[in-house]
């Protein structure tokens, strides 16, 4: 197998140039998919027979919850790459993805609470799914705080990587909490592997908005990483030239 691409990722300059090509594609697909999925889901999909229109919050809740977990897995992978291969870019990815993941967790928790009040009769209940999701939010806060608290960049990278890797144990707990224990939260409606528990005209907009959220995450992450790479490489000649070009374009 050719591992060239993997080793190339070690070079911030190469990443900066290749991500310039990916970014527009990701941004355009994110906008198209999000607009299609959300407009279809929020305005045109049929209401649910029991919940009426309040079920439509699923088009925000489920994609945000998916991303909250996927981003944490990404943090753990980036942490492993950073610890084992000492790749600088892995730490950039970890630090820049963590706040996005924290926001996605907040969206999932808040939309869930808003939906819970009319459906369950309560905003919050300490069941295994909700509690493990709250722990995920605190793990994100931990990674962000640790990254900011340690001034030495290498030590901060190591500490964040270890926390991200240990915290990944929480992900299967979130995933299977609804099957292992009695919870108020229902099992998954939408899954990649199983037959969906909703008809096509409800399921398709959900799939589109999930994909849209992923593209949105990809685009935002690349933008944040490019900025951080420039900031960290500010002493190198290519970064100086790039910043100069950007400033002149801005004027």
């Amino acid at each position: 197998m050719n591992w060239m691409w993997f080793h190339k990722l070690g070079s911030p300059k190469w990443f900066y140039e290749i991500s310039r090509l990916w970014l527009p594609w990701l941004a355009v697909s994110a906008v198209l998919l999000l607009v299609t999925g959300l407009v279809w889901g929020l305005a045109f999909a049929p209401p649910d027979y029991q919940q009426g229109n309040s079920f439509r919050i699923i088009y925000l809740h489920v994609p945000a919850a998916f991303l909250a977990q996927s981003i944490y897995i990404m943090l753990a992978i980036a942490g492993t790459v950073g610890l084992v291969w000492k790749m600088k870019l892995a730490d950039v990815a970890l630090q820049q993805a963590a706040p996005i993941g924290a926001w996605m967790t907040v969206i999932a928790l808040v939309t869930g609470a808003i939906w819970g009040k009319p459906t369950w009769g309560t905003y919050w209940v300490w069941d295994a799914r909700l509690t493990s999701m709250l722990i995920l939010l605190f793990l994100y806060f931990g990674v962000i705080a640790l990254g900011n608290a340690i001034t030495n960049r290498d030590s901060a990278a190591k500490a964040c990587a270890v926390l991200a890797i240990v915290g990944v144990v929480n992900i299967p707990i979130i995933q299977y909490s609804v099957e292992w224990w009695n919870t108020l939260h229902q099992p998954a409606t939408f899954s990649i592997v199983a037959k969906p528990a909703m008809p096509f005209e409800m399921w398709m907009p959900l799939l589109i908005s999930v994909l849209g959220f992923y593209c949105f995450f990809g685009a935002v992450l690349l933008m944040r990483m490019r900025l951080e790479v420039l900031r960290r490489e500010v002493r190198s000649s290519w970064a100086k030239a790039e910043i100069k070009a950007q400033v002149e374009k801005g004027l």
């Binding site: 649910d48 029991q50 108020l184 229902q186 099992p187 998954a188 409606t189 409800m202």
Partner: peptide, 9 residues
């Protein structure tokens, strides 16, 4: 407790 099934009326 809501179940995971959604369907139009």
């Amino acid at each position: 407790k809501h179940d995971e099934n959604y369907m139009p009326p």
